[in-house]
Simulated assay, not measured.
Amino acid sequence: MSKPNFNQAIEKIDRVNAQDPNTENYQGKEHPKELLYSQRMTETLLSFEPQASKELQIAARAQHIARWKIDRNTYPMDRVGYLKWREELKKMHAQLTSEILQDVGYDDDFIDRVSFLIRKKMLKKDDETQTLEDVICLVFLQYYFEDFAAKHPDEKIVDILQKTWGKMSEKGHKAALKLPLDPKSLSLIKQALA
């Protein structure tokens, strides 16, 4: 059995995400959307938790692997439909990542741990799951919140922010309040926390 190769695992995850047909313009250049997202996840994780385990680093990188393959529109456009869609995505992300990790020589224990994290099991009880959730929330707030907020009424945004805040740890809250957010986003966050 060859020694597991972390860099190879990351490269393979990136190769899948580079196939995303959806793109995002960032710093004047078009990027495959999920590739950009996964790079932001890694960057945010390593600044938030520099000692993150390899399992956690891979889970963060693969958080949205091939997300475009299961379209939100294939589920009812209500809360139940949304939750079913999210559950299916988590299963797919865990499955694809497990296959990649097997390919590059990781053992079952390592693979099971990464799947556990991707499926966000034991939130609030498992430190690494909590760290992953914090990083997901921080990436959302820093890179996606402003556009998202512009498309919805303030009351809905305040409600979403309160739910997001509830999933985060104290350390996550502190990091969120230090993000370079625009005044409108900051005022919505303040309303949510009031």
Rank of each mutant, 00 (worst) to 15 (best):
R72F: 11
M41W: 11
M92K: 15
W85R: 05
M41E: 08
Y143T: 03
I111C: 08
Q130P: 04
R40M: 03
I70G: 11
S53W: 03
A150N: 15
E146G: 11
T74C: 07
K29W: 06
D78V: 07
Y106M: 10
S47E: 12
A150S: 15
K84N: 15
S98M: 06
D71R: 13
M41R: 08
P50W: 02
S38G: 09
S98H: 12
M77L: 14
D103F: 04
M92Y: 09
Y106W: 07
K121P: 00
A94P: 01
A62P: 00
I58R: 04
D103I: 01
D107E: 13
E133P: 01
L132F: 03
K125I: 03
I136A: 05
R72E: 08
L96Y: 12
L96V: 07
E128I: 08
F140S: 05
L96S: 02
A62I: 01
L132E: 01
E133A: 12
V135N: 12
Q142M: 08
V104K: 07
M41A: 12
I65V: 14
Y37F: 13
E34V: 00
D147H: 13
S53E: 06
T44W: 00
N25Q: 09
K84F: 10
A150Q: 15
D107L: 05
S53F: 02
E146K: 14
T131R: 05
E43G: 06
D154S: 14
R79S: 14
K33S: 11
A150C: 12
G28S: 11
K29I: 11
D126C: 10
L45T: 04
P50K: 01
K120A: 07
M41I: 05
Y26R: 14
Y37L: 08
L56R: 04
A94Y: 02
S98P: 00
E34F: 02
Y75P: 05
K124M: 04
L101E: 03
H93Q: 07
K54P: 02
Q39T: 12
